[in-house]
Each structure stands twice: as C-alpha cells, then as structure tokens.
C-alpha cells in the first residue's frame, strides 16, 4: 500500500472528498440559515458609507512587478528541488563532482540575484 499509485490515489480521492464536502456544507447550510434579502441589504459595503463607482478600481502597477519577480524566482526554486536532494550524495566517484554541482547552482542563483539587485536599483522594490 505504499506504492506510487496508492499514495497519489489517496491524494486524488481526498481532493474529490474535499470539494464535495465544501459543496455539501454550502448546500446543507441553505436549509439552516434564514434568507431575507432586501435591495438595501444587497448593496456593496452595506453596513458602511455608500459606495461610489464600481468595485473594480485601478490598482498600483507595483503588484504586477512583484508577480513577475515571483515567477522568475519560483522557477528557480523548481530547479533547486532536484538539485537539493542529490547534492549531498555527490562525491569523486559520481559523474559530476560536488564542486561542479555547487558552483553551477551558485552561478545560477547569482544571475537571479543580479536581477533582484537591478530591480532594487530601478526602485521597483521600494515605494514612497
């Protein structure tokens, strides 16, 4: 029962059960809660001041830059995972020497850090 399919099979079943559970909770709750809608109650930000304009406002462009930076570093992380598992096992008998593996990955990380430094120099990481 510890085979690949058994493990990820449990995961697949759990995803389905989780989604069903949420749907069931929401459906059951329909019967348990009162529903007395009124036009006033359904306005945006009902309890507070009256909303002006629509809810979709312009937002700061910086969020877009952060998302971009994140994608770059997250791809880096994907490359780091397999490297992290084997780097400790490398020695002089393996096809790749530990020195090579470490230096190669450090060069990769430094390249990305340079990009981060550039973004910082351009002033997109701080705002005033």
């Amino acid at each position: 029962m510890t085979s690949f399919y058994a493990q990820y099979g449990t995961f697949a079943v759990l995803v389905v059960v989780g989604c069903l559970l949420y749907a069931v909770i929401m459906t059951l709750n329909r019967a348990m809660r009162p529903s007395v809608p009124s036009p006033q109650k359904l306005t945006t930000y009902e309890c507070g001041v009256e909303a002006i304009g629509t809810g979709w406002a312009q937002v700061n462009i910086r969020y877009y830059v952060f998302a971009f930076l994140f994608v770059i570093f997250d791809v880096e992380a994907v490359f780091l995972f397999p490297w992290a598992v084997i780097v400790g096992d490398l020695d002089s008998t393996t096809a790749i020497s530990p020195l090579f593996a470490v230096v190669a990955m450090f060069l990769f990380i430094l390249t990305l850090l340079e990009g981060l430094a550039y973004a910082w120099k351009k002033g997109v990481l701080t705002w005033d």
């Binding site: 909303a51 809810g55 937002v59 952060f66 570093f73 997250d74």
Partner: peptide
C-alpha cells in the same frame, strides 16, 4: 469577486504578500 474596493485592495495586498514571502 466581492466588487468592493476594500476587498479588491485587500485581495491584491494578500496576493503580493503571499508570493513575496513564499520565496
């Protein structure tokens, strides 16, 4: 989806914060 400016800003702040600290 809330179509509320408070919600939208909150959601975007949360998104930016979660991805920033994910790294």
């Amino acid at each position: 989806a809330s179509a509320n400016k408070f919600s939208l800003f909150g959601g975007l702040r949360a998104g930016a914060q979660l991805i920033a600290y994910e790294l």
